[in-house]
Design a binder for these strands. Structure first.
Length: 639
RNA sequence: GCCGGCGUAGCUCAGUGGUAGAGCAACUGAUUCGUAAUCAGUAGGUCCCCAGUUCAAAUCUGGGCGCCGGCACCA
């Protein structure tokens, strides 16, 4: 007999050799029907596995949170079987579960077409209907390699070759087909059900390395029920509607065109939004003790060689040649330029920390395939700043920065922020003692700020550890925006020094930091987060005055003039159109407030206030409406 | 950069070798209307670019550019 412990602490005796299936049946028939796996001592295993004496076990059913990952991975296996049945000679590689679904990477000469996906999907249904049991086998390593090599599966053979010696080589069979797999799996293919869909084919490098062969990756999504699948597909459609590229056009904010790939043509409304953000940031930085500078766009390569960027990023830098054959580079970053300003004149420790900010316009020749709307462009503006400080100012500067960053994110409507702490990479500059100091200071600082953070080991910059700030948007997507980096290398390389209390020269620490990241990308994120319905302080047009009849034109102009005088960004719509039509148009344009005026309002000196998305209106005296709007539309800078 | 798909009116798309189309938007006229589409009419195209095949190319072939979905990259 063996004894296992259930999640509620209850103990259950079973005959030796009992499996998870036996346990589930032992507990109840209905549970056995829904059981798909076992969690034994915290590890997911097959239902068919023999339980060990004294183990803490939990029955995983199709409704358990853990089930989705199994479901998705199983679906990937079904996909692989379908593909190999339909396209003999195709090699399988790996096929994991991912968020919302799964993928499988295949090696095949001919590309899969959208039509192929339909055929594959049909075959998958058949395989699921066959309800073949997933059967685990453990193989000898060398035999497994031989087996896969004999089948021409060189990728699988390579995978086994590279598995650590300690690892058991497990194979899962489903009917005639089998795959190398760690497991676990659900009892049979039937459990995958019908709520799946193949989504797309894409290229992907073998083992994520661009020097390797390109495989074909088929993406799919799978859910417990048709209803969940439908909800997921609806969510995708909704996400598409808030795509910043689409809204940018619909709201007349910006456009992109071939002749300037990767650079943005800002239209009047988009530029108004941009300027609002810039003005807001300028206020916040000023309040936080920064001063603003502006540095050159074109800088001789000599400076980039000195900073080390020429070596590393030459391929991605735009250059221009002068008549006397000097090579200038369009600046890809601002740091070296800021050091030049710092180096002007002798600096005292009394001047530190020195917080130098720039809305730095940068150019990087990003790979063509990486461009994406206004989120990833070749010409962008960082809300950049460098804090020149002494080593023992790092902690306080970092804490102040975190406070500033969180407060700014909150003003933009982002309250869910995650922090990643990236420490020393294998290849790095600087003594370990300096790294110890930098990491400790940063760690103290992030602790002092009260922020939760996760470790990102080895992901720091080559010159120092960094914090990365990731914000979550309204539909749960994460965006990395802010950064805070401790740098001991660049000031040294570029010869920045200050005179300390001891009247000796010292090298300052340079703290690289950004909050928005880039204006362009951040605006893209804002648009998608708000689905275009920007908070009133950011909206390019805050208020539209719309008339119902032309008799109200004169009064509408008066309303409009008073709004302008009150500093509100207003528009006026005197067109001879029905009010329904105007309401619809301005709602689609996502203008936050409409002031509707007809004969009644003109006579009474009032306005009907209609807020975007709200059917009910409120009629207010004009002066009252304006003073309320003035407060509502105000930039959150505490003035 | 790599793999695949796509490129026709401002937008969404139809058109597969023989006269370039629809809906919406735009413009003009009429309509003066109370909170998400008034009616009628008009105009709008280098069918991404460059070569080639053909009597004839939006359509077929080759090259280029751009965009989209991924991968890789992201100081």
């Amino acid at each position: 007999m063996i004894e296992v412990i259930l999640p509620d602490g209850a103990k259950r005796q079973l005959v030796s050799g009992s499996t998870g299936t036996a346990l589930a049946t032992n507990i109840s028939k209905s549970l056995a029907k829904k059981a798909i796996a076992i969690k034994q001592n915290g590890k997911l295993v097959d239902l068919a596995l023999e339980l060990t004496d004294g183990a803490a076990v939990e029955i995983i059913t199709i409704d358990s949170p853990e089930a989705l990952e199994l479901l998705r991975h199983d679906c990937a296996h079904v996909l692989a079987e379908a593909v190999q049945e339909l396209f003999p000679g195709t090699q399988v590689t790996i096929g994991p579960a991912i968020e919302n679904g799964f993928y499988y990477d295949f090696a095949r000469e001919q590309p899969f077409t959208p039509y192929d996906l339909e055929i594959i999907q049909k075959r998958m249904k058949e395989i699921i209907d066959r309800n073949e049991a997933f059967i685990r086998e453990e193989w000898d390593r060398q035999e497994a390699i031989k087996f896969f090599e004999s089948k021409g599966e060189v990728y699988k053979a390579e995978l086994i070759q590279d598995l650590p010696e300690s690892e058991t080589i497990s194979i899962y069979r489903q009917g005639e087909w089998l795959d190398l797999c760690r497991g676990p799996h659900m009892p049979s293919t039937g459990w995958v059900g019908a709520a799946f869909k193949l989504m797309s084919v894409a290229g992907a490098y073998w083992r994520g390395d661009h020097r390797n062969a390109m495989l074909q990756r088929i993406y799919g999504t799978v859910w417990r029920s048709e209803k969940e699948l439908a909800a997921h597909l609806t969510m995708l459609e909704e996400a598409e509607k808030r795509d910043h590229r689409r809204l940018g056009r619909e709201m007349d904010l910006f456009h992109l065109q071939e002749e300037a790939a990767g650079s943005i043509f800002w239209h009047a409304k988009g530029w108004t939004l941009y300027r609002q953000i810039e003005a807001y940031m300028r206020h916040r930085l000023e309040g936080a003790g920064y001063f603003e500078v502006k540095t050159p766009q074109l800088v001789d390569r000599a400076l980039w060689e000195a900073s080390g960027h020429w070596d590393k990023f030459r391929e991605n830098m735009f250059t221009a040649e002068t008549e006397d054959e000097r090579i200038l580079a369009l600046k890809p970053m601002n740091c070296p330029c800021h050091v030049q300003i710092f180096r002007q004149g002798l600096k005292s420790y009394r001047e530190l920390p020195m917080r130098m900010a720039e809305f730095g316009s940068c150019h990087r020749n990003e790979p063509s395939g990486s461009l994406h709307g206004i989120m990833r462009v070749r010409a962008f503006t960082q809300d950049d700043a460098h804090i020149f400080a002494t080593e023992n100012q790092i902690t306080s500067e970092c804490k102040e920065f975190c406070d500033l960053l969180l407060s700014i994110y909150e003003d933009f409507g982002f309250t869910e922020v995650r922090v990643k702490f990236s420490d020393r990479p294998d290849v790095r500059a600087g003594e370990d003692s300096v790294w110890d100091k930098a990491e400790t200071a940063l760690m103290d600082a992030v602790n002092a700020s009260g922020l939760e953070f996760e470790l990102n080991p080895g992901e720091g910059a080559f010159y120092g550890p960094k914090l990365e700030f990731v914000l979550r948007d309204a539909i749960g997507r994460d965006w990395q925006c802010g950064t805070f980096q401790v740098d001991f290398v660049l000031p040294e390389r570029l010869g920045a020094t200050y005179v300390g209390e001891d009247s000796q020269r010292h090298t300052p620490v340079m703290l690289h930091r950004a909050i928005l990241g880039s204006f362009e990308r951040f605006i893209g994120i804002l648009i998608e987060n708000y689905a275009g319905r920007l908070p009133i302080w950011l909206a390019p047009v805050q208020v539209t005055v719309a008339t119902i009849v032309s008799d109200a034109d004169q009064y509408a102009r008066e309303v409009f003039n008073q709004l302008k005088a009150a500093g509100i960004r207003a528009e006026i719509d005197l067109r001879n159109e029905k009010i329904n039509y105007k309401v619809r148009e301005h709602s689609l344009a996502k203008t936050p407030i409409m002031l509707v005026v007809g004969r009644r309002e003109a006579i009474e000196g009032t306005v009907a206030v209609r807020k975007l998305g709200v059917k009910e209106q409120e009629t207010l005296a004009l002066s009252e409406a304006i003073s309320r709007l003035q407060i509502e539309a105000k930039m959150p800078i505490g003035l």
